[in-house]
C-alpha cells in the first residue's frame, strides 16, 4: 500500500515535469517534442542535485520496463495502412536495412577512429 502511494507520487512528479516540457514548447513555439524537453528538465534536476535519484527511481524504472506497452495502441493504427505496406514492403525493407547498416558502420567507425587518435595524442 505504501509502495503504491510512493509510486503514484513519483509518477505524478514525472507527469508534472512532462507537462512543463509541453508548456515550454507551446509558449516558445519550439519545433521539438514536449516530452523530450521534459526529459532534459529531469536530467538537469538530477545533475544539479535538486532531485535525488531515489525520489523518482522506482517509478522511472517501472515505466521504462513497460515502455513497449505504450507503442502497442499506437501500432494498432497500422490497421489503416495495410495496403500501403503491402504495396511498398520490399522498398521499405531495403530502405530500413541499408540506412541502418550504413548508420551503424559510420557511427562506430568515426567514434573508434577519433578515440584512437585521442589516445595517441595524450598517452
Amino acid at each position: 500500500m505504501k509502495l503504491m502511494a510512493v509510486l503514484l507520487a513519483q509518477v505524478l512528479a514525472l507527469l508534472l515535469i512532462n507537462q512543463a516540457g509541453y508548456a515550454v514548447v507551446s509558449v516558445l513555439h519550439l519545433p521539438v517534442p514536449g516530452n523530450l524537453l521534459g526529459m532534459l528538465f529531469l536530467l538537469i534536476l538530477l545533475v544539479t542535485g535538486v532531485v535525488p535519484l531515489r525520489w523518482i527511481e522506482a517509478s522511472a524504472s517501472l515505466l521504462i520496463r513497460h515502455l513497449a506497452f505504450f507503442f502497442i495502441p499506437i501500432a494498432v493504427g497500422l490497421m489503416a495502412f495495410g495496403e500501403l505496406f503491402l504495396d511498398n514492403g520490399l522498398a521499405i525493407l531495403l530502405t530500413l536495412v541499408v540506412s541502418a547498416a550504413v548508420g551503424i558502420w559510420v557511427s562506430g567507425l568515426s567514434a573508434q577512429r577519433l578515440g584512437a587518435w585521442g589516445r595517441r595524442k595524450k598517452p
Binding site: L14, L36, L40, L42, L46, I56, A60, L63, H66
Partner: peptide
C-alpha cells in the same frame, strides 16, 4: 509522457 521523461535516469 512520464515514461519518456524517465529516460533521463
Amino acid at each position: 509522457g512520464p515514461a519518456t521523461v524517465s529516460l533521463a535516469v
